[in-house]
Amino acid sequence: MPRLRRPPARPVLLGTLLLTLLALAAWINLPLVGRVFDRSADRVAALPAVSPFRPGQRVLVLSPHPDDETLCCAGMIQQAESAGAQVFIAWATAGDGFEFDAVLTQKTLRPGPQQMRRLGDLRVEEAQRAAAVLGVPPTRTFMLGYPDGGLFRLFTTNYAEPYTSPRTRASAVYVRGALTPGAPYTGRALETDLLRVLDRVRPDVVLAPAPQDFHPDHHTLSFIALRLMSARQQEDRLRFWVVHGGLEWPLPKGLHTNLPLTLPPLAARLPWERVDLTAAQEQRKLEAVGTYRTQTRVLGRFMHAFVRQNELLSPEPLPEQGQAPQRSRAGP
């Protein structure tokens, strides 16, 4: 019987060596790591700077989940508050749909509806702590508490009929401190709450997820914000950010405060503007990220990757077409 030959080990060894070198480079935080993974650093440096916030402005951050407001906008929130503007935060969901998160926090292999609801209440508490770190008091925050992972259903098939979350088995808002406790999980109720927030805040600037953001809750909230603000003839007050911007973005993962936040691949053609952060603002953003302990235990390297030299904001939800003039601006 002929002897079987072993496949050559050299390609395996070379591949292992390459991965080890890349991991080592990321670990020691070389200044050029960002360029290895994403060549758009030069494009970021060439972006125009966002106009500064002004005293008396009212700025509303629309956050799909607890932590999005920090990842996208912690530096901007600090800058607005320092400039004498008032920042308000509205969370559309309580972030109660991440089952692996519940496995760790509730110490159970099969989290049931009650464990998922406890996760939702825990994330509400984390959101309040993050807001406090960034200088936003509880009186300027709104927890809407609609189902994590269900906003698209509310926007479409469950606009009028209540949706039941497959994770929590809830069909109405249950989290502590919600704006409208017991509101049904319907698109109509969500829009009513968002309109209530807009009426209370009367924002000059609304920071919302961009339509290109990959997460369904994110781009659905973008569609709703565009429709509601357009109905008020205030769409020019919207500014757009991205958190889920494409495979593996932002790179490199982990904490790299000396690197820029580069353009998200899924939205690279938006007319981005750059928000430069000071070292103190980066540190405060890192502290706010750290309040989300339920998330950093699982997604820490992803979340820390947003603590960079800058943040990104687009005045438009779509790429510019030709040389068409931009609309007038009402915000930073």
Rank of each mutant, 00 (worst) to 15 (best):
R6W: 08
V12P: 00
L14W: 08
G15Q: 10
A23C: 10
L24M: 14
I28S: 02
L30R: 01
G34D: 02
G34H: 01
G34I: 00
R35G: 03
A41T: 03
D42H: 09
V44M: 10
P48I: 01
A49G: 02
F53G: 03
R54F: 00
Q57S: 04
L60V: 11
D67T: 04
D68Q: 06
D68V: 06
T70P: 01
L71P: 03
C72W: 07
A80E: 10
A85T: 02
Q86T: 12
F88S: 09
I89W: 02
W91E: 02
A92Q: 11
T93C: 08
T93Q: 08
F98I: 15
E99H: 11
D101Y: 01
K107A: 07
G112L: 11
P113N: 09
Q114P: 09
Q115P: 09
D121N: 15
Q128G: 13
A130H: 09
V133D: 01
L134Q: 05
L134T: 06
G135E: 08
G135S: 07
P137W: 14
T139Q: 14
R140C: 13
T141M: 09
M143A: 11
L144M: 13
G145P: 14
P147M: 13
P147H: 10
D148L: 05
G149A: 08
G149D: 06
G150E: 03
F155L: 12
Y159A: 06
E161K: 03
Y163G: 12
S165D: 11
T168L: 14
T168D: 08
A170W: 13
V175R: 01
P181A: 13
T186G: 10
R188Q: 15
E191P: 14
L198Y: 15
D199M: 05
R200Q: 15
D204S: 12
P209L: 15
P211V: 05
Q212D: 06
D213W: 09
H215W: 03
H215D: 01
P216E: 15
P216C: 05
S222N: 04
F223M: 06
F223K: 10
S230N: 05
E235W: 06
R239C: 03
W241V: 03
V243Q: 11
H244M: 07
E248H: 15
K253A: 12
G254E: 10
T257W: 03
L261R: 08
P264I: 12
R269W: 02
D276Q: 15
A279E: 04
A280F: 05
E282L: 05
E282Q: 15
Q283K: 07
R284V: 13
K285E: 02
E287K: 12
G290A: 10
G290W: 05
T291H: 04
T294W: 02
R297H: 01
L299S: 02
F302N: 00
M303L: 12
H304G: 00
H304E: 11
F306G: 06
F306H: 03
V307H: 05
E311A: 06
E311N: 05
L313F: 00
L313K: 00
S314L: 01
P315S: 10
P315M: 04
E316F: 03
E316Y: 06
E320T: 14
Q321A: 15
Q321F: 00
G322R: 03
A324Y: 04
S328Y: 01
G331L: 05
G331T: 07
P332F: 04
P332Y: 02
